Amino acid sequence: MRAILLAAGVVLGAAGHGVAQDTQTATGTGAVLRVLDKINGEVQDITLVNGTAGAVWRMQVELGECRYPAGNPAGDGIAFVTLRQQGQADSLFRGWMFASAPALNALDHPRYDVWVIRCTTS
């Protein structure tokens, strides 16, 4: 996994959530994530501010932080996300998701898919 992150131009640091730290990235104010219900084919976008959570259907989505290439806010977003089934304490997923490579580090759930669309900057 470290090699993949290095290939993406990100170096893992020790701060925060194992937060991606590098002078080549900037921190956004939040992120737009997309949730797919694979049973009924519905898609819903959720916009979260860093450090907040929201609910889509039965999925609790928590955003730790979203980072993007410095100088290119529309570039590849990288978000630290925690996903839980509503009413459950244990997380289904906790880690970094890449907008340009949603399958790289994906939620493995029979009903829902969640992926990063982009970081927000204001």
Rank of each mutant, 00 (worst) to 15 (best):
M1Q: 09
M1K: 07
A3V: 15
I4N: 05
L6Q: 07
A7S: 15
G9N: 09
V10C: 12
V11F: 09
V11C: 06
V11P: 11
L12Y: 08
L12R: 04
L12T: 11
A14H: 13
G16E: 07
V19P: 02
Q21E: 15
D22P: 05
T23A: 13
T23W: 05
T25E: 13
A26G: 10
A26T: 05
G28H: 01
T29F: 04
G30C: 13
V32C: 01
V32S: 01
L33K: 05
L36C: 06
D37P: 01
D37T: 01
I39H: 14
I39R: 10
G41V: 14
G41F: 03
V43N: 02
D45N: 10
D45F: 06
I46H: 07
T47K: 15
N50Y: 11
A53P: 03
G54R: 02
A55Q: 15
V56C: 09
V56A: 09
W57A: 14
W57H: 00
W57I: 07
R58I: 01
R58T: 07
R58S: 14
M59E: 07
M59G: 05
M59F: 06
Q60V: 07
L63V: 12
G64T: 12
G64P: 01
G64E: 14
E65H: 11
E65N: 06
C66A: 01
C66R: 01
C66D: 04
R67Y: 00
R67H: 03
Y68W: 03
Y68E: 06
Y68C: 12
P69I: 00
A70F: 04
A70S: 10
A70V: 12
G71S: 02
P73V: 03
P73F: 10
D76G: 15
D76Y: 08
D76V: 13
G77N: 02
I78V: 14
A79L: 12
A79R: 11
A79H: 10
A79M: 09
V81Q: 08
V81D: 03
T82R: 08
L83R: 02
L83P: 10
R84H: 15
R84I: 01
Q86L: 12
G87T: 11
A89P: 09
D90H: 05
D90E: 14
D90C: 00
L92Q: 07
L92W: 03
F93H: 08
R94P: 02
R94F: 04
R94N: 08
G95K: 09
W96G: 00
M97L: 03
F98K: 01
F98M: 12
A99Q: 07
A99E: 12
A99D: 13
A99K: 12
A99M: 07
A101T: 13
A103N: 11
L104A: 13
L104G: 08
A106K: 08
L107E: 12
P110Q: 06
P110V: 14
R111K: 12
D113S: 06
R118G: 04
R118I: 02
R118H: 00
C119S: 10
T120P: 05
S122I: 11
